[in-house]
Design a protein around this nucleic acid. Structure first.
Lengths: 192, 192
DNA sequence: CCTATTTCTTAACTTAAGTGAACGCATTAT
DNA sequence: ATAATGCGTTCACTTAAGTTAAGAAATAGG
């Protein structure tokens, strides 16, 4: 597990053994059971997550309906809005599968960043990369139809379609579960 | 103009006079005429922009159609995807109005960040904030209908609806210009 | 000043998503 | 074992967005 984390970090900065052990001394690794809620709407959390194994999702509760807006799987990082803005969370975070995560809190991060400027650099690089990547995702979403979005997802994250319930996928694609079913049927129709 | 920039920066870090003059020595400020293309699809730019006055937009050219995905106005920062990823750009950036921008390139930024770690901190804070803000925008987009998106925009950025052509607004909302017209008519209908 | 072009709106028609309800299937609980 | 629940699909119907085309309004250029 450690190695997954260090491999990830090595994409941004190279750590000395000292820095590695400073990180490991923080007790970051946690196992979480499927269905666990990591963050509730209204809460003021300071926790960020890195997925080593498994899958977590963010969702809003709107008119009694869950609206899933993102899935985080292996090697994905999630720093909730409420941690950045220090405001109560607008959404929930829950575990889609039994998962292994690193959980860090922002005070801890500030301390580490202060001690090791290298982490500051990593955080900047990572944030910039995620910002750019998310921009592309958003742009793709805007410029395509639900059907195109589904086909796109099939290309880019085929695993998600297997490991995640349809109704969660549907809201992730911005549509209703019934429309997703129909759309899939339509695609099969076309292929034949 | 300088003050707008320094006011913005002061939201993240406080600069000494030395640091301020280091920044000013970089010749960042540029006037750009309406219609100017700042970045073309396929180009490998290193430039980032900060809008002091005016409006710029990003758009894709898909099947001969412009798809506008974002508008950047006063106090907005734009670091194109291609600058982060060092890949050719997927999209265009152009000037919606006569504008005043700061234009910086990534080599320059790396140098400054190296000399003044404070800038590194600012960049991280800014990226994290933008990432979180964009996440919220994306979530709102996903969880709402075109009509709701329009009403939302009317609340949050009423100026955009005035200063930007309808067909650009339409693709920004993920719909066709005709649908935007119809949708506006529908809303007026309801009010009366 | 007038023309040419672009931009915006309107309309009729097509297509796809939303809605409400029913059904089958699997899992869970009693 | 049976009932209950949750999930996914299907269907009929409604609503809204896409498409194509035409015309009005605004803008730019000569």
């Amino acid at each position: 597990m450690k190695n997954i984390l260090f491999d990830f970090i090595s994409k941004y900065v190279s750590l000395t053994d000292d820095e590695k052990s400073a990180l490991l001394s923080l007790d970051l690794f946690h196992s979480v059971k499927k269905g666990t809620t990591l963050l509730k709407e209204g809460q003021n959390s300071k926790e960020s997550y890195f997925v080593l194994k498994g899958c977590i999702r963010t969702y809003y509760m709107i008119d009694g309906e869950e609206k899933t807006t993102a899935f985080y799987t292996e090697m994905d990082v999630l720093t909730p809005h409420c941690v950045i803005n220090k405001t109560p969370s607008d959404y929930f975070i829950s575990c889609v599968e039994d998962s292994i995560l690193t959980v860090s809190n922002s005070d801890m991060e500030a301390e580490i960043n202060c001690k090791f400027p290298k982490f500051e650099l990593m955080c900047r690089k990572l944030s910039e990369e995620l910002l750019a990547k998310q921009r592309i995702d958003f742009d793709e979403f805007k410029t395509s139809s639900p059907e195109e979005r589904y086909l796109n997802l099939l290309q880019k994250r085929p695993d998600l379609i297997q490991r995640v319930p349809q109704h969660q996928l549907a809201s992730y694609l911005g549509i209703k579960p019934q429309s997703l079913s129909r759309l899939r049927a339509r695609i099969l129709e076309k292929k034949s």
